[in-house]
Structure formats: C-alpha cells, structure tokens
C-alpha cells in the first residue's frame, strides 16, 4: 500500500506495461526512480492550469498507483493502456454500452466518462479486483455457472454492474435485477442467463456471508 513500494513495482521490469506507461508520459530516457524523486519534490499544486501531463495517484483494487497523465485522460484509458488492466473494456466511449463499468466507492460507473483525475481520492474496483488469488468472485462464479455470456466482451462490465447492484441491494427482486442490469448492452443477447446469474450470485453472497 505504501507509495515507495508501488513506485518500485511500477519500475519492475516484469510489469513492463506499467513501466512503459510511465515512461511514455515523462519522456524516454528518464528512469522510473528519477521520475519518482521528481514527483515527490514537486508540490501538489491543485489548481495548475495546464493541459500537459501531471501527477496523479489512484487507488485501484486496494492498491495505490502513481501516474503521470494528461488531464483529458479517462479512467478507462489509465486502466487499460497505462496499467495494463485490460479486463475493463471499451465499447463506445460515450456512456452507451457499459462495457467499461467499474465500481467507484462501491457504485457502478462508466470509466469512459470518468476523467482519471476525478477518480483521485476514491476507491476504484475493476473486474481484476473481484478475483481472489486464482479464485473467482461469487458474481464471476455465478456468471460462469449460468453461461451468462457468449462472446464475453461485455461480461466484465456486466459483472461489475451486478456486483454494484448486489453491494447496495442484497436481495434484489426480478424487476430490480432487470433495472440494475439495464446499463449494460449485450449484443449476444445473454440477458436471460445474466438474470439467472445475478439471482445465483445473490444466493452465493448470502451463503458466503453466513459461512
């Protein structure tokens, strides 16, 4: 969780994607460490008026990430292109499909219409954050069991929407499930199985809670 640790992680050659993202935004030739010291030296000036990249820290799936991004960057882009967390999908980039759904402070939102800087100070949860080690989260498990997907491309977004729904409503009615899932398109038309999966997930969550 501490910053040092995460900056090192960012520089870890094994996580090439993050590192590349980092370098990309500060210019090739600098090392990650140099950037880090640079950053901590730079005062967090809240109201800098500049379209150029600036420093941002985000907490994603409980882990803090230090980044340098342009103000116009959306959260979807940071997740995918900067951090290599490609479970969150782009579908329209204008709030019309739901493939990019993530949780922000437990509420489902579209990461395409969320500027990365607007996620600062909030907890972001992505599809990757629902997996515990190798074990699927209960909503993921339910989607798998009920075949609640076909091509699977809308699926991470559907699962995050379901997770958000179940975090605020432990025992949704059929109508509430349908309403709760109405912000995610599925062109494969898996809705029927998605409804079943959400019901199943609610059961599994209950079992998990009582266990």
């Amino acid at each position: 969780m501490n910053e040092d640790h995460d900056l090192k992680r960012t520089d870890d050659p094994c996580s090439r994607v993050s590192r590349r993202g980092f370098l990309e935004s500060v210019g090739v030739g600098m090392t990650g460490i140099a950037v880090a010291s640079n950053l901590s030296a730079q005062d967090a000036e809240e109201l800098t008026e500049d379209a150029e990249p600036k420093k941002l820290s985000l907490v994603i799936n409980g882990r803090k990430h230090m980044l340098i991004v342009e103000p116009r960057t959306n959260l979807l882009y940071v997740l995918r292109e900067k951090l290599g967390m490609t479970g969150t999908k782009p579908g329209c980039e204008r709030g019309e499909c739901g493939a990019c759904t993530v949780l922000i402070d437990d509420k489902s939102r579209y990461s395409c219409l969320t500027l990365a800087f607007e996620a600062d100070g909030h907890d972001v949860t992505t599809i990757e954050g629902l997996v515990h080690g190798e074990k699927l989260g209960v909503v993921q498990q339910a989607f798998l069991e009920k075949d609640a997907f076909q091509c699977g491309y809308c699926t991470p977004g559907q699962i995050m929407a379901a997770e958000g729904l179940l975090r605020s409503n432990h025992d949704p009615s059929d109508e509430e499930i349908r309403e709760g899932m109405s912000g995610n398109l599925c062109r494969c038309g898996a809705y029927q199985h998605i409804f079943k999966a959400v019901r199943r997930a609610a059961e599994l969550k209950k079992e998990e809670g009582s266990a």
Binding site: G95, G98, S108, R109, L113, A161, L165, G183
Partner: peptide, 9 residues
C-alpha cells in the same frame, strides 16, 4: 433517466 451507472454519476 439514463441508466443505473449514469444515474450513479
């Protein structure tokens, strides 16, 4: 209005 996610935001 809109969709659950848009209403959350």
């Amino acid at each position: 209005a809109a969709s659950p996610q848009l209403r959350n935001q």
